[in-house]
Design a protein around this nucleic acid. Structure first.
Length: 361
DNA sequence: TTTATTTGACCGGT
DNA sequence: ACCGGTCAAATAAA
């Protein structure tokens, strides 16, 4: 928790500094006669930076505060999950209820209590394979045709399930109505190092390259206003209040920080900061600004809940053993967040109490 | 050779 | 019996 907090502090400072630098760039840019697009992009990035910073602050706010906020604005479902989603489909609501029941049922059976669940809606146009990049390493373990659904549902589990006992899973299903939209259901919280440190373990250079190109493409498309890969991230979050009174606070950045978000006014009210935009303008399209590549690796700052005390007592397959051995070597690398920012004292108002006690309280 | 994906089989719940 | 979720052998990709 200590290192996590530190990470959040760093990220917060990073975002604030980034916002400040971008604002300065914008200021310079305004003196030039060119590139309105560039200005738009800068503004978007500034907004995004402050948005994330505020999100971090918010998620570290006292629980009661968060609760009050969410309950004041959200339409509550029966059984109390504060369900929020941007989907116009009532199916999501049903799914949330159903999953909630499943969780309760599972809790009886296996003594494993997934604490929270997100429903994230991501869409992208062609050219991108789908919402696979959400900052975590997933391993596909199944695919199933679902009754009444055009497209099959894919099942993923955390790559580190066996090595670190991380039981996070997700399901990805392409929307019937809009095939460019993927409904992603997250189950369980990451207890692996990528969840704890909220950074990805080092990827292979190859993968890093791919990701980087991916981001560049998005930036370029936005900057040039051509063939914009419209990342419409309609986030929805489902917070469940559990029997023991614990409340887990979902928090997730969009799988990409570039794109366009839309929220419908009849939907539930998410807890996430993005949705404050939706509240202020209930049918607003919000363009997420492109940010630095590393910001794409901002997974959920984890409110660590180690409820997954179930023991993976199934037999290991040969590939699993291989996975354990091979992944352990990389896991010991202790990935260190690469924030790629520097604190230039000259750039910061020395009177600004970044490090005063209580600033991060 | 290692790692990830595919896909039919299997399982438990309804 | 049906359905959704998971397993694991086979296969593909790196």
């Amino acid at each position: 928790m200590e290192s996590e907090w530190s990470w959040e502090q760093n990220t917060l400072i990073n975002e604030l500094i980034q916002g400040m630098e971008l604002a300065r760039k914008l200021k310079e840019d305004l003196r030039m006669p060119y590139s309105v697009d560039s200005r738009d992009m800068l503004v978007q990035r500034i907004v995004s930076s402050y948005e994330k910073a505020l999100l971090i602050l918010r998620c570290n706010a006292p629980i009661s505060e968060l609760q009050a906020t969410s309950q004041a604005t959200a339409t509550l479902l029966p059984e109390s999950p504060i369900s929020v989603h941007g989907s116009p489909l009532s199916e999501d609501v049903d799914g949330a209820i159903k999953d909630h029941k499943e969780i309760q049922h599972d809790a009886k059976k296996r003594k494993i209590t997934p604490k929270w669940m997100d429903h994230v809606r991501v869409s992208c146009d062609s050219g991108l394979e789908g919402p696979q990049e959400d900052g975590y390493n997933w391993r596909k373990y199944g695919q199933k045709d679902i009754l009444g659904a055009k497209y099959p549902r894919s099942y993923y589990r955390c790559t580190f399930r066996n090595t670190q006992g991380c039981w996070a899973t997700k399901q990805v299903q392409r929307s019937d109505e809009d095939p460019t939209i993927f409904d992603i259901t997250y189950r369980g919280k990451h207890t692996c190092s990528q969840g704890n440190n909220t950074v990805l373990p080092p990827k292979s250079p190859d993968k890093q390259e791919k990701t980087h190109i991916h981001n560049i493409d998005i930036h370029h498309a936005q900057a040039s206003q051509e063939s914009l890969p419209k990342f419409r991230n309609i986030m929805s979050v489902n917070t469940e209040k559990l029997d023991n009174g614990d409340t887990a606070y979902p928090f997730t950045f969009p799988s990409t920080s570039s794109g366009c978000m839309k929220q419908y006014n009849h939907s539930f009210i998410p807890l996430t900061l993005e949705n404050e935009y939706f509240l202020s303008d209930q049918y607003q399209t919000y363009l997420l600004s492109p940010t630095t590549p590393e910001s794409n690796y901002l997974p959920s700052p984890t409110f660590q809940i180690n409820e997954f005390d179930g023991i993976y007592n199934k037999r290991y397959s040969e590939s699993d053993i291989n996975e354990i051995i091979s992944t352990n070597t990389s896991a010991t690398n202790s990935p260190i967040p690469d924030f790629n920012f520097s604190l230039d004292p000259a750039e910061i108002d020395p009177n600004f109490p970044f490090n005063t006690p209580g600033f991060f309280s």
